[in-house]
Design a protein around this nucleic acid. Structure first.
Length: 558
RNA sequence: UGGCUCAUGGUGUAACUGGUAACACGUCUGGUUUUGGUCCAGAAGAGUCUAGGUUCGAGCCCUAGUGAGCCAACCA
């Protein structure tokens, strides 16, 4: 975006923070952002918001954005997650400047911790976790000091060195910052800086047995990388005081210090965003892994067929503020349809077929009709579709009797076969249960689409899609719906969120009739099965399988 | 000894730092259309949580309430 364009545009409060600093003399060259995921899960739509915010500022101000893995807890993190995160960010269309790891700073962090000890601002505490928690007290009343709080510097230094050199077992002791056990902010009550974890780290392997906590690592990493603005979600608001305290108390050579600002995390109706719960769905096999098309993960949405531009547009429309919010699922659907309408190749596929015979169409005749691949964009070209006497149409595109509001086929009523002829319903054939097994109709031979004849130009209220009975492909289709039945599945902590799962969130439809040109589909393109919705190829084995991304908007009220 | 944050149509975000609320989604009309899609035109829907105060004038400032969220992991 250039300067002109950005002028009239309303800015969010993060924008305003940056701009007011810029106008206050902050050099634009010193702007630098970062996206700091922990590699302990797959990225989801909530992360996409954060990615769009940080990388968006990078674009807006032509500033570098680091990708930094907050890998301070080896028990939960691994390289599978790192790879997926990098892949997802790229797919969303963003590039980072430097690929960083908090673990790259472990040496520096250790030295700084020793410095704090020497300054009398950190100490080794031999108490166990429950004792420490007890002494921390509750928010409404002060805590009490640890009996180890006043250890002398040399003792602390020795102990800290021993922690590092594997003299203690996990839980035996921790390094704590010496701040204020009386602070109304719980995070200032001598927070833990290092704990002992005997677990191989995916990068530093077995080099370390002590690991810095989030609070001790995050701000310092920002400082090391010259991050100017450290944006995070609201729950870190109470951490800011500690973030600032650490940076204030390390020995600094730089004058520009990073600043943390917080925005509200994204919530979307009918889904969950908690990584822990998403993991639970994966591990309990409720879904088909992290990339199940019903998952709000980036990889799930990709497999579902939601294009990256749609996700970016969505994040843009969602806005940035400090208010708790629940975004209507319909907004994501809108964004998806908006880009797919312009980009999807159209095909004719009949999901729930019933046979249609054209009585007056010559037996054995076959003709190829011309169809547009995308009526929004002629550059998508045209294709040929096979047509003959016997076809399949959608079962609910026919009613024996109908009123004026029903535009589709019925006895004595005309309808257009998409790209083909105008037909009129004649009679039906039923089985002994009264279920229609075949529909008979007559066609107007002069009404072929594109023929330019007077008959072909006639206005008919309805148009339906169809597939040639004698020339088609057979595919499988996965019909997806929202994963949960209620708007806020994890709102009530008493009830297991999994009890709200929509048991119809996946309907597998086998042996669906599709026009034969579907043989030519590929994984890069997006498709619209006309009048049915947008679909994405999921697998291309002997049999094609498609995932329904989203239905077409439907305003018809019967 | 509790602290911090937030409060604008159904949803989300704006409102040039004081000049009687705008945009998007959704909803509802009508038109176009060989997708009941798209597109086009239009409508309804809030007087900005409450009560005071400052001011010629307040969604924006002040005070007090009310409601909601976050914080008591050796998670991030």
């Amino acid at each position: 975006m250039n300067e002109i364009e950005s002028v009239g545009k309303s800015e969010n409060f993060l924008d305003q923070i940056i701009r007011s600093e810029l106008s206050g003399g902050f050099d634009k060259k010193n702007l630098r952002f970062r996206f700091p995921p922990e590699p302990n899960g797959y990225l989801h739509i909530g992360h996409a918001k954060s990615i769009c915010i940080n990388f968006g500022f990078g674009k807006e101000f032509s500033s570098p954005v680091n990708l930094r893995f907050d890998d301070t807890n080896p028990e939960k993190e691994n390289t599978e997650f790192i790879d997926s995160i990098k892949n997802d960010i790229k797919w969303l269309g963003f590039d980072w400047d430097e690929e960083c790891y908090a673990s790259d700073y472990f040496d520096q962090l250790y030295d700084w911790a020793a410095h704090l000890i020497r300054e009398g601002k950190a100490y080794v505490d031999d108490q166990d976790q429950v004792k420490i928690a007890e002494q921390r007290g509750v928010p409404s009343s002060p805590g009490t000091n640890s009996p180890f709080r006043e250890r002398d510097v040399q003792t602390n230094l020795d102990l800290f060195h021993k922690m590092k050199t594997n003299h203690f077992k996990p839980g035996e002791c921790v390094l704590r910052a010496k701040i204020d056990m009386n602070s109304p902010n719980m995070h200032m009550r001598d927070p833990v800086m290092y704990r002992i974890i005997n677990h191989e780290h995916h990068r530093t392997k077995d080099h370390w047995v002590i690991y810095p906590t989030y609070d001790w690592a995050h701000g310092q990493s920002d400082y090391i990388e010259n991050i100017s603005h450290s944006f995070c979600t609201l729950e870190f608001e109470v951490h800011r005081e500690l973030y600032d305290w650490f940076i204030e108390n390390i020995p600094k050579k730089k004058k520009l210090l990073p600043k943390q600002s917080e925005f509200a995390r994204l919530n979307v109706s009918y889904t969950i965003m908690s990584k822990r719960k998403l993991l639970e769905l994966v591990e309990s096999n409720v879904v088909d892994g992290w990339s199940d098309p019903r998952m709000p993960t980036i990889s799930g949405m990709r497999r579902r067929g939601i294009p990256p531009d749609a996700i970016r547009n969505f994040c843009d429309k969602v806005g940035v503020s400090k208010r708790e919010n629940i975004i209507d699922f319909a907004l994501l659907d809108f964004c998806t349809r908006e880009v797919l309408n312009k980009t999807a190749y159209r095909l004719m596929v009949v999901l729930d077929p019933v046979e249609l015979e054209i009585i007056n169409y010559p037996e054995g005749k076959n003709e190829m009709l011309t169809a547009e691949n995308n009526q929004e964009d002629s550059s998508y070209g045209r294709r040929e579709v096979s047509f003959s006497k016997n076809l399949y149409i959608e079962r609910d595109d026919f009613k024996e009797e109908s009123n004026r509001k029903y535009f589709r086929l019925s006895i004595g009523k005309e309808v257009r076969l998409k790209n083909g002829y105008i037909i009129m319903g004649d009679k039906v054939e039923k089985d002994k249960n009264g279920v229609i097994t075949k529909i008979f109709c007559t066609y107007d031979p002069n009404s072929r689409s594109g023929s330019g004849t007077e008959e072909s130009l006639r206005k008919v209220k309805g148009t339906i899609h169809w597939v040639d009975k004698n020339n088609h492909e057979i595919i499988d289709v996965n019909l997806y719906d929202r994963l949960f039945k209620i708007q806020s599945p994890d709102e009530n902590k008493e009830v297991d969120f999994k009890s709200h799962i929509n048991e119809n969130s996946l309907i597998k439809v086998k042996n669906v009739y599709a026009e034969s040109s579907i043989k030519n589909v590929n994984f890069d393109n997006y498709y619209q099965f006309q009048r049915k919705g947008y679909f994405k190829l999921d697998s291309k084995n002997e049999k094609l399988t498609f995932n329904r991304t989203v239905t077409l908007r439907d305003t018809w009220k019967s």
